[in-house]
């Protein structure tokens, strides 16, 4: 059973469709990307999944809790979901620790538990030295890490991250990505809403392209069927002809020391290497060709504009 199952979810604001007929599912323990241009309905989708407001139509199940039109989100759902909002949103006059303890208690933790978990997360995110600084005095990266700590304080089953690295400097971006990577390795179900394609490539197994409605689900870093690059250590005139003679090879082109080889199946790679070695070529590396996310994203945007989903 998927951790998140979204079925034909729709939401309008003042007559403007923000989300229309959106459907996708996320398996437990998966890090799932939600991609799309500004105004595509990504944040609205996350807010519905977090129980901030209900959909106009459609339904969703998040961590076993149902979300339906005209029904308030259950407390149970909010206990099982951790939401990282686009901006950190803490109280300036409370310090980092007080902020975490306050939200921990709002999530139902006892004072002792909230304090213990706050100390643990401040330690984990290298914020312990700043625990008693007012929130306003923290750097942007620290604020964002504190917001991630808040989203995790109550040990949620599902973590929804809205633009976790937007506006951060490279160092803070790296820190936040490291944290998200750790969450993924812990086996938490994560939905990562972002514009940053590189972030999705690093962290997610799959991503949905959204522009009001779902346009495509993309397997991130999917290996293109049977295509490999072979890099030679030295020029070899006989390499390309030797490969063309192999039954498993469909097509070979050469650019300098690099051979672009299209195979009937990826299990033909050992035959390719053996043939190259037999003809005296020195193989430096063999790499499968991956599907570039940026290309897929641009193609999807073009398709969305063609269908009138984007201006």
């Amino acid at each position: 059973m998927p951790a998140i199952d979204v079925r034909a979810l729709s939401k309008s604001f003042a007559g403007r469709r923000a989300v229309e007929g959106l459907s996708f599912s996320v398996e437990a323990g998966e890090c799932f990307g939600l991609l799309g241009p500004n105004g595509a309905g990504k944040t609205t989708t996350l807010r519905m999944l977090a129980g901030l407001f209900g959909p106009d139509q459609g339904s969703a199940t998040v961590a076993g809790c149902g979300i339906r039109p005209r029904e308030g989100a259950s407390r149970e759902l909010r206990r099982k979901v951790g939401l990282l909002t686009e901006l950190p949103g803490f109280y300036d006059r409370l310090d980092a620790n007080e902020n975490l303890v306050h939200f921990g208690r709002l999530y139902g933790l006892s004072r002792t538990d909230a304090r213990a978990r706050s100390a643990r997360f401040l330690e984990r995110f290298l914020l312990a030295a700043h625990a008693h600084k007012p929130f306003a005095a923290l750097s942007r990266g620290m604020k964002q890490k504190l917001a991630i700590a808040r989203a995790l304080l109550h040990e949620p089953e599902v973590v929804l991250l809205d633009e976790p690295t937007v506006g951060l400097d490279p160092e803070a971006t790296r820190e936040v990505r490291t944290v998200v990577g750790e969450l993924r390795r812990e086996g938490r179900t994560i939905v990562l809403c972002t514009h940053d394609l590189d972030e999705v490539e690093r962290l997610c197994a799959r991503a949905a392209f959204v522009a009001t409605r779902l346009i495509a689900i993309h397997e991130v870093a999917a290996v293109q069927r049977g295509r490999v690059h072979v890099d030679l250590a030295a020029p070899s005139a006989g390499a390309a002809p030797a490969l063309r003679n192999l039954p498993v090879v469909r097509e070979v082109t050469q650019e300098g020391l690099r051979l672009h080889v299209e195979l009937a199946a990826l299990d033909g790679v050992p035959d390719v290497v053996a043939a190259l070695v037999a003809c005296g070529a020195r193989v430096a590396a063999v790499q499968p060709v991956r599907d570039p996310l940026e290309e897929a994203y641009m193609a999807v945007l073009a398709e969305a504009r063609g269908r009138g989903l984007l201006s």
């Binding site: 807010r47 977090a50 129980g51 901030l52 407390r75 149970e76 909010r78 206990r79 979901v81 939401l83 909002t85 901006l87 950190p88 949103g89 803490f90 109280y91 300036d92 939200f103 709002l106 999530y107 139902g108 917001a147 808040r150």
Partner: peptide, 14 residues
């Protein structure tokens, strides 16, 4: 103003 309303509404309090 401080954008704390959204995190507050995301907690289980009614």
């Amino acid at each position: 103003e401080r954008r704390t309303l959204e995190p507050l509404l995301a907690t289980p309090i009614s």
